[in-house]
Design a protein around this nucleic acid. Structure first.
Lengths: 211, 211
DNA sequence: TAGATTGTTAATCGATTAACAATC
DNA sequence: TAGATTGTTAATCGATTAACAATC
């Protein structure tokens, strides 16, 4: 698919939400939707929806609206959900284990091919049919299997070193649950930071405002 | 603390990140920082930092900059991290368990006082020194203990019903890990949605752009 | 005092909303 | 054809950046 280049990050952030709502409509066997109707359901304006979608092409039909199934599939393509990116999970503590078990990576274009932890006692334990490997083997494993994405469920103080290592080993994208901000030093690497602590602090602030 | 009213959500979203960086400076025994220096470290502009902070008051000193410890504590106050909000965790599956175990709620102004799940087999299991209770007891528990916040680690199809119930029981804030968007129907309720699937789809998109 | 850096106002830039002609 | 709704351009609104006077 051709590079679409400079689409605003705000639009991109909304794309998965569109996809989620379209999936729901599809499940409810609704096969047609107008920007106006979708706007009401999503709490947006019709204008914004049309502007957003038109960053990627004209998916609608005048006088009719959008075909749900078609639009859903188009967005899936734009998001790359049809891919199967080889992915390593680093950090098999509570959070790493939960993510690995709870999450259907295949649905989102990823495939976990290896799980690593530096804790000796975890080595050999089975998570999602995969043995936990010791971090010493990470380098060779990556050379042999060439994963392109990594999930980091490790503490802040290990994140810098591990992410540098992984970048050198060819990892292009990080799903980062540590508190360390990877993106700052690396331009051509994709990073999604899931800062749970930032999220709960925002909730705390907003709770203050209500009282 | 007086209500500051209409501070932009974008500023609020940045506040926890300021706090995180200030904590780091504090740990490194740096006790003074200028907006220019902080801007470099955070990848922002000095202007933006000064504008952001001045939404809440003048924390700096001309010719000097900001006192790290002082600013950190001010932001902690603004975020309400000093509180201890009684909180229930609903959903004790993989994710709920990981969150409960992995996360230092006290640091962020929350305190888990009860864990609930509708699965009979989990009842009585101990998480973080607390027994998992069956969801049937949620209503009475809330009447007796008056929690004001809830963490939802339940599937989408249960989220609507449970969130409605909890709102009626006086819950004012949700940390929502389900795919259901609570906020849409309720105005005076604070919601932080952690949509992990949205996050990984954004990563997928950004990976596509790199290739 | 002179130098540095803030707080704040003004200028720019980008994102959202509104409007409407094109068209199914 | 008439009605509906898109794609797209123009207007508005808000957020970021730049500039500078105030002041520590």
């Amino acid at each position: 698919m051709a590079t679409r280049g400079g689409v605003s990050p705000l639009v991109i952030k909304r794309l998965p939400r569109y996809y989620r709502f379209l999936e729901n409509l599809s499940k409810k066997n609704i096969n047609r939707i107008s920007s106006g109707e979708l706007a009401i359901r999503m709490g947006l304006t019709a204008s914004q929806i049309r502007q957003d979608l038109n960053c990627f092409g004209g998916f609608g039909q005048q006088g009719f609206g959008y075909n749900v199934e078609e639009l859903k599939n188009s967005i899936a393509g734009i998001l790359g959900l049809n891919k199967s990116r080889k992915t390593v999970l680093v950090g098999a503590g509570n959070l790493g284990r939960a993510i690995a078990t709870h999450f259907d990576f295949g649905k989102f274009g990823f495939k976990i091919i290896g799980v690593f932890d530096k804790k000796e006692s975890l080595a050999g334990q089975i998570i999602n049919d995969m043995p936990v490997r010791h971090t010493v083997g990470l380098e060779n494993f990556c050379r042999d299997n060439k994963p392109t994405a990594a999930i980091l469920c490790i503490p802040e103080n290990e994140a810098e070193e591990i992410s540098e290592l992984l970048i050198n080993l060819g990892i292009k994208g990080f799903w980062n649950f540590s508190h360390y901000d990877i993106a700052i030093n690396h331009k051509d690497i994709a990073v999604e930071n899931v800062h749970l602590s930032d999220s709960i602090m925002t909730l705390s602030y907003n709770l203050n405002e209500i009282e």
